[in-house]
Amino acid sequence: MSAATSGARTVRTRDSRPSVLATALLMLGAVYCLVPVAWVLVAATKSGADLFSTFTFAPGTHLFANIADLSAYRGGLFWRWMLNTVLYAGVGAALSTLVSAMAGFGLAKYEFLGKSTFFNLILAGVLVPGVILAIPQYLLVARVGMADTYWSVLLPSIISPYGIYLARIYATASVPDELVEAARADGASEARLFVLVALPIMRSGLVTVFLFQFVGIWNNFMLPYIMLGSDRLFPVTVGLNGLLNQGATQPALYTLVITGALLSILPLVALFLLLQRFWQVDLAAGAVKA
């Protein structure tokens, strides 16, 4: 409030001078968000005994030993979990982006029977809570004999109502009708038109769709938790959750859990930092019309 009252009385140039309070609040937020990450960096260097005895942020010397132990755990099961996660999130998000881009382009650039019905269904799908899906999805997948397979996690991850909704907005906003007409006049088929003209223009928007879906799948714990029984198919989240459960009786596993937690977030953190400029999320962009 002091900024408002003093700002009103004093000269204009003063309202851009640095505010200690504003900066301090931001730094406080940053520290709060970094503490657990800093902790896991330190904790992964401790031996099992040090974990519960030394000061929280006192580093140990066991990082490489811990990584070696984790890699040796049941013949490298952890790395298999990591690969599975990349498969579920990477392939799932790529397929999801393609399906969303096609549907979004179709909805944006064509008139056809059933268009508004389908789009309204998609909009309703954005608000459907996943809770109602988990059990029936499992039962249906089990019925067709796909429970406990890669497909049981991949297939439900591909459809993304929100991704389709975003892709439609991007296609409407970025692909000019004249360009579509010109390509058609040149004799391009609709498929060529989509791949060679629309996709490159929609690219940066689609990166956002991909990232959304990638994080969504990586984050979705309940789906693989329900679908998968054999631990060789687990993503790293379900795997580490199981390992923590066993840790209740074998505390030696805690070190593995912590080292695994660190290794599993490193790639995602790196990806985030590299792609930060694509995270410009306007949830309400099209909601005005909805």
């Binding site: 968000c33 970094l34 994080v215 990586w218 912590i258 977030i265 995602l268 990806l271 930060q276 995270w279």
Partner: peptide, 16 residues
Amino acid sequence: AIFLPYAVPAVIASLL
């Protein structure tokens, strides 16, 4: 820094 936790899945965040 404040956006970083979004990169950490809920399970891992709960572990930490």
